[in-house]
Computed example of a mutant assay.
Amino acid sequence: MSSSFQALFVDNTEPFSVAVKSLSQGDLPAGEVVIKVAYSSVNYKDGLASIPDGNIVKSYPFVPGIDLSGVVESSEDERFVKGQPVLVTGYGLGVSHFGGYSEYARVPADWVVPLPDGLSLKEAMIYGTAGFTAAMSIQALEDNGAAPDQGKVLVTGASGGVGGAAVAMLAGRGYQVVAGTGRTSESEYLKRLGAAEVISRSEIYDPEAKQRPLDKQLWQAAVDPVGGSQLAAILSKIAYRGSVAVSGLTGGTKVPATVLPFILRGVNLLGIDSVLCPADLRLKVWERMAGDLKPADLEALVDREVTLDELPQALADILKSNTRGRVLVKVS
């Protein structure tokens, strides 16, 4: 391991700063596994970690990055050996524990997932936390009866990281995907991912219109990384015994819904948590992401690839919705 290496540091010392700095192994937090990081990615939560009032980082200075892939440099845990390709997402990575925007990372062994056969280190981070969340959403929907022959599936926030991955995965599985987006200018991109139909956000939820607790049944299921009032509208349009997998709150935390979709149509509202997902389910979902859920053109999800030096701009862009799909970070 190099005596010094590069990492993106966030510091709240006046003035607040986001810059690449040199670290040593002694600067890394405790953990049983040291990983030489190859790739990370840019997520909305990472963007929040890079601003003073993002309410993500608890102590400074800090290295953000909520996911990473790389090879084991050293391990105190017999489950992992030097040179083994691995990935880490969730838990405290990039939130309470130094994250993936560093050429080396040291993490608890229980956080580490062996890279599944069928995925490269780069592909693992094209997915990243966003792709993993999308795959968990699909797993939950299928566990509750969703199937390609049961009707259309809505994906909201489709031009974002979770939404784009969900569109591509579902289409690859044979589902008829309806991509909902606030940026209909991205229609060609979404159709390239496999969307059969692209609709505007206003076609899902019109804040000026009176909302019905039960509306026309349009979709067998939905992947919703948006939440908020739009989620209430989605619930009213899900078919009998259908499901909605919700994983985000960019549309807000309040859902002004009634119980009618649940008690009259048997609709399921499925919460998706990718942070503390149990290890057995985590491994199962990653194996599917390397197998039946892997899109034929995974690279189509990539908006651009950046270096550590280019990261500050990419983090600012994701907060302004100036990205589509995934921003890949080549760390080393």
Rank of each mutant, 00 (worst) to 15 (best):
V155P: 06
T184P: 02
F98M: 15
H97T: 11
V113L: 09
A165F: 02
A109M: 06
V113I: 15
E142C: 14
D149W: 07
G163H: 08
G157K: 09
L93Y: 09
A135S: 14
D149M: 03
A158G: 01
V178E: 08
E188A: 15
A146W: 10
P114Q: 07
E188M: 06
G131F: 12
Q139P: 00
A171F: 11
A171V: 09
S202F: 07
V177P: 05
R192A: 13
A146P: 09
G151S: 10
A179F: 10
P114N: 12
Q139I: 01
L141P: 03
S120A: 02
P116C: 04
D149Q: 14
D143Q: 15
I126G: 02
E186F: 03
E186Y: 05
G182A: 13
G160L: 05
L154F: 07
E142N: 11
L190E: 02
L170S: 10
I126E: 01
F98N: 11
S185T: 13
G94C: 12
L141V: 08
I199A: 06
G94E: 11
V95K: 15
L193S: 07
P116M: 06
Y104W: 12
V153R: 08
G151F: 06
D110S: 13
V162F: 06
M125Y: 06
R173S: 05
R173G: 01
V95H: 08
G99F: 10
A168R: 08
R183F: 07
P116I: 04
S187F: 01
A140M: 13
S120H: 06
Q150R: 15
Y101L: 06
G100K: 13
G163R: 13
R192P: 00
G99D: 10
G163L: 09
Q176K: 15
R173Y: 02
S159T: 14
G194V: 12
L190C: 06
G164V: 04
A105D: 02
V112Q: 03
V95L: 09
V167L: 03
T181W: 00
G131W: 13
R201N: 10
V95S: 13
R192G: 06
A135F: 07
A124M: 08
S187N: 10
A124F: 06
Q139K: 13
A158N: 02
Y189T: 04
E123S: 07
E123L: 01
F132G: 01
R192M: 05
G131Q: 10
V162L: 03
V177E: 04
R201Q: 12
V112P: 00
A171N: 07
K152A: 14
S137K: 13
A196T: 13
A140R: 15
M136F: 01
N144Q: 13
S185K: 12
S96P: 00
E197R: 11
R192F: 00
Q150G: 01
S102A: 15
S102W: 11
Q150P: 00
G128I: 05
P108C: 00
G182H: 04
S200V: 03
A168K: 07
E186P: 00
